[in-house]
């Protein structure tokens, strides 16, 4: 028996060693076990397939759109952008308001750009209501959304309630999960 060394043999031996070693190492390092409570919390978020974001065109509400997009990115959620035109009680709900409608479309199109940057499907809605909160809730029910993400104004000192009227209505009456995003006043 003579020692017979060939470069190809050396290469095969090295590849063999690392293939077997590598695959065994991978096998022996499984991910850690997930506790029941952790699994429940983790999987409860999975069902977010349609997210409603009310927008007023203000920076804080557009930040809400960005947050919603990131939240829905994993499951390719549909982002339902909603602008509510508040109709004064002195006018009928279907009263023509061309200026407000044009503004609504501009704001929604700006929001659509944010959504499209994340390659998610946007849905644009213009709702008419006496109060913003009421219009958002109707849109949420009609579109069977899984969650509402609301970007809140930073300065609530003049507000009548703790979180602002719209947020109050959403928290009380929303048919789904509600996520409120409020930045500190200094930002």
């Amino acid at each position: 028996m003579h020692v017979q060394v060939s470069p190809l043999g050396i290469i095969i031996a090295v590849v063999f060693f690392f293939s077997i070693g590598g695959i065994l190492w991978w096998m022996l390092h499984p991910p850690p076990q997930i506790k029941p409570e952790v699994a429940k919390a983790r999987r409860s978020v999975e069902a977010l397939k349609r997210i409603l974001v009310p927008t007023s065109g203000m920076p804080y509400s557009e930040r809400g759109i960005e947050l919603a997009c990131r939240l829905g990115a994993e499951h390719q959620a549909e982002i339902v952008l909603t602008y509510v035109i508040e109709i004064p009680r002195t006018l009928p709900l279907n009263a023509p308001m061309p200026e407000a409608e044009e503004k609504a479309n501009q704001i929604l199109n700006r929001g659509k750009e944010i959504v499209e940057l994340h390659h998610l499907p946007p849905v644009l809605l213009v709702e008419r209501a006496r109060e913003a909160g009421e219009g958002i809730i109707r849109a949420a029910k009609d579109n069977q959304v899984d969650v509402i993400v609301l970007g809140m104004r930073t300065d609530l000192r003049g507000a009548q309630s703790l979180w602002g009227r719209t947020s109050d209505i959403l928290i009380r009456k929303a048919p789904c999960e509600v996520i409120l995003d409020k930045l500190p006043e200094s930002s």
Binding site: V3, L8, I10, I12, A13, F16, I20
Partner: peptide
């Protein structure tokens, strides 16, 4: 593994 590695290193033609 030792057989395969030794074989390829020192005996394989």
């Amino acid at each position: 593994s030792a057989l395969v590695i030794m074989g390829f290193l020192f005996a394989w033609k």
